[in-house]
Design a binder for these strands. Sequence first.
RNA 1: AGAGCCGAGCGAGUUUAGCGAAAGCUUAACAAGCGAAGGCGAGGGUUGUGAGGAAAGUCCGGACAGUCUAAAUAGCAGACCGCUUGGGAAAUCCAAGUGCCCGUGAGGGUGAGGAAAGUGCCACAGAAAAUAUGUUACUGCAAGUCAGUACAAGUGCAACGGCGGAGUAAAAGCCCACCGCCGAUAUCGUGAGAUAUCGGGCAAGGUAAACCCCGGUUGACUGCAAGUUUAAAUUUGCAAGAAGGUGCUAUUUCCGUUUUGUUUUUACAAAAAUUGCAUAAAAAAACGCACAAGACAGAUAAUUAUCUUACUACAGAAUCCGGCUUAUACCCGACUUUCUGC
RNA 2: GCCCUUGUGGCGCAGGGGUAGCGCACUCCCUUGGUAAGGGAGAGGCCGUGAGUUCAAAUCUCAUCAAGGGCA
Length: 122
Amino acid sequence: MLKRKNRLKAKTAFKATYNNKNVFSNDLMILYVGKLKEDENCPTRVGFVVSKKIHKRAVVRNRIKRLMRENIRLILKNNLCNNINLYQSLIFTAKNEIIDKDLIEIRKSILILLNKIANKKI
RNA sequence: AGAGCCGAGCGAGUUUAGCGAAAGCUUAACAAGCGAAGGCGAGGGUUGUGAGGAAAGUCCGGACAGUCUAAAUAGCAGACCGCUUGGGAAAUCCAAGUGCCCGUGAGGGUGAGGAAAGUGCCACAGAAAAUAUGUUACUGCAAGUCAGUACAAGUGCAACGGCGGAGUAAAAGCCCACCGCCGAUAUCGUGAGAUAUCGGGCAAGGUAAACCCCGGUUGACUGCAAGUUUAAAUUUGCAAGAAGGUGCUAUUUCCGUUUUGUUUUUACAAAAAUUGCAUAAAAAAACGCACAAGACAGAUAAUUAUCUUACUACAGAAUCCGGCUUAUACCCGACUUUCUGC
RNA sequence: GCCCUUGUGGCGCAGGGGUAGCGCACUCCCUUGGUAAGGGAGAGGCCGUGAGUUCAAAUCUCAUCAAGGGCA
């Protein structure tokens, strides 16, 4: 689980991130990106969405969320990707294909998405 | 070898870095600042603790909260229930039994009051589908729109008992045995009922998960997104604006029937606090909410090696309890029964 | 979380115990120089699934699955 300060919680923050219209996707998930940070010390907030349409059972949805969170936690801790620190907020929305994927596959997918942000900026 | 039934379990501890909430400790952190407030700012250790048998479905019953401005008694209406006894706050609940159905059996299932209170329905087929009937028939002679009969055939889910005998012109519970049915009595049982004996001569088609009747229980509705408190804000329009008030009726109580002026009172005149509905905009926090889970983008997860049946099913608490139903892998422990072999 | 509604031909809907229907769409034929419109004929359904009541169930009862809606 992420630390409290890294969680995206407020409803308005979610709306703001969606309205920024900076969207990337691949096979497993969709990534919504918020605005650039003005202050470096401000923590990046990350939200996760797993719709009920993806799977009926709460157990499966919870597991997907937990795997995604664990990945982000490891990335933040080990500084695997610098892009993640540039933005105020990120939202990961799961797709159908993410069911039954393990930790490492999801990590790869997340890193690919984060690199896409970098490419676009240049 | 197969089957039935009952009960228990849903891993253990280890490495690394983590999460929720609680109580201590610590830190400049009870800071400045922001905010109506909660709080954000705002961290670091320690201690013990952190999903299920169904947490699910939301099918019942409660607790709790609000609305119907209160409450009791009787009746009506409505809703629910429907074999017996016991348990239980109650329940479409549980246990033990009775009858019926299924199974070789252990055992399982069961919405199981009333069809002689009334009404409705019973397609097609069939003569006839309900106060039974006479289509094809059978027998007799006086040969007829005659008399006797309802055995046999046929239709159908269902046709005023079944099967066998005796009997007759041909026949029929007309008579007889057995079975079924109905009634009475006796015995056993708290009871649902069971058994036996006697009698009747056979009446009473099915359907009440059709209306209904009978008996019993019961204020109704809405549901924690109920609701309470605090703070800020509060558009426009309509109606009511003072008399009645439980779903209805009756009776008894209870609550209420404003303020000001004139006035002994009655009465008259004036005022609008307030309430309801619709619409627009905006929605913050706490309580409800948890004495060993407990939030509000919502905690149980990842990883290393090992033991074990166990990296394997169904599956994730959201106000809380009692049940039911449905989904389920694997393992352990009882008991019972059937078949085969010795 | 709590409370509701609906499942019938490809699509939209009727039917509320007795042979499953309507409109549009589809196929074939007629009409036309050709197309549309029009006319005629036809195909397509175990009524979401599983039990029960009944002689008989799309219909009544129970369970279950799916889709949709509402509630501060």
